[in-house]
Simulated assay, not measured.
Amino acid sequence: MTTTHDERLRRPSGIRSLRLGGTKVSYVPDGAVRLRPTAVLPDTTDRTWADHPEYLDATGHLAGSVGALLVENGDRALLIDSGFGPRSYRPGPDGPIEEIHGGALLDGLAELGRAPEDIEAIAFTHLHADHLGWACLPVPGTGRLAFGHARHLLSEQEWDSRDELAAQGLADEVAALAPRVHTVADGQEIFPGVHARIVPGHTAGHAEYVITGGGRRLIAFGDAAHSPLQIDHPEWSSAFDHDPARTAAHRRRLVTELAEPGTLGFGVHFADVVFGHANPSDGRPTWRPATA
């Protein structure tokens, strides 16, 4: 049975891979999130979503993916983010999140032929729980961290703001990261063909990672956007953004980049369309999934 584009917008992604020359990148699912549409994108209305029902699942929520990006170059392997970890969370009747869960990341890595020990480093986009998961939480039943051997890479600005994030309930996660943290600077190459790009707005030191190979580049843009609909409407910032105006300004620049030839994007929360590019349609860029 053929899966339609609209069906993919309403479900979380499974494993998806593409190649950039000698580099292979794979989305590794950890779980899923269901978001309350007008709460997560406060500039939208019920009318907005009535006009875009293809983005909402059967319960009326925005379906999102939760996971990590595996970057492989020869025998070497890097993770970008580490999912939500082996837990689930239902925060209550208010706020942007209806439900979020993780736990599948290690199984996904195994399916791709990788053990946790193969991962030399985890490069984090930012210090939020759905990106830190497996780096901070022990493997169930073992008491040990799956990636305790790996370097943990964060922007200098993000790590410098850790006290503020700890005050928001992430003190345990920050403490678990601390022994392995190595800060990175804007433009720094952290892995063959992978450069960090610091773009404050979602958080104080939010990072993107630009992966190049085979004459193409992939921008892993973290939480600069949470939904493909924000590629159509970059002016819509999310309720999670630390500085909505700054994030919107960056997202406009990002959309322009994603429309350039040879440029792809990776949106970790983009339902089952995590890889794609901005394709101008009727004068407005629209997210189009990439298949290879």
Rank of each mutant, 00 (worst) to 15 (best):
P91Q: 02
L153V: 05
R197I: 04
Y89H: 07
R34Y: 04
T2H: 14
R19Q: 13
D172N: 04
F221S: 13
G133D: 12
P280A: 11
A68Q: 00
G83E: 05
P37Q: 10
I119L: 13
I211E: 08
A220L: 04
M1R: 15
L153S: 02
S13E: 08
Y27R: 01
E54C: 00
P285F: 12
I97Y: 07
S237T: 14
A171D: 11
G214K: 11
G14W: 05
T256G: 15
R197P: 02
G276K: 08
S238W: 05
R284A: 06
D130F: 12
L154Q: 00
A224W: 13
D223I: 07
R284C: 06
P42Y: 08
P53Y: 01
A178F: 00
G103E: 09
H277I: 01
R10S: 07
A123L: 09
A50I: 00
A249W: 08
Y27E: 00
R162M: 01
A239M: 07
V268H: 09
D107G: 11
D243Y: 11
R251Q: 06
V71E: 02
Q230C: 12
A110T: 14
D118Q: 12
P285V: 09
Y55R: 03
D272S: 12
G133T: 08
A178G: 03
D46W: 03
L62A: 04
A249S: 12
G214F: 13
R144M: 05
Y55I: 02
H277K: 08
A150E: 04
V33P: 01
E235R: 10
D160S: 12
F240H: 03
A185L: 06
K24C: 04
G143W: 13
S26A: 11
T38R: 09
L153E: 02
L170G: 00
V28N: 02
P37A: 06
R216K: 15
R151D: 15
Q157F: 00
S26Q: 01
F275R: 04
G103Q: 04
L218G: 09
I219N: 08
V268I: 15
S82L: 01
A248E: 13
R8A: 10
G31T: 12
D186T: 04
H131E: 10
S82N: 03
V181W: 04
R197T: 11
A77T: 02
T212I: 08
L112Q: 10
D282P: 00
D163H: 11
A278F: 06
Y55V: 01
A278I: 04
A207T: 14
A175D: 11
I219T: 10
T23G: 02
H5Y: 12
A104E: 15
A248C: 12
R11G: 06
E189Y: 07
A58P: 00
T291L: 13
H152E: 06
H126N: 14
D160P: 01
G187D: 06
L105V: 03
G187V: 12
E156T: 14
S227C: 15
L106M: 05
R16N: 04
A171S: 09
S82K: 00
S238H: 06
E120Q: 15
R284T: 15
A146L: 05
L79Q: 01
N73S: 09
P138Q: 08
G103W: 10
A171W: 02
D282E: 12
H182N: 02
F124R: 09
R288N: 01
R252L: 10
P91H: 03
I119R: 09
A115Q: 15
L78N: 03
H233E: 11
T44E: 00
R114G: 06
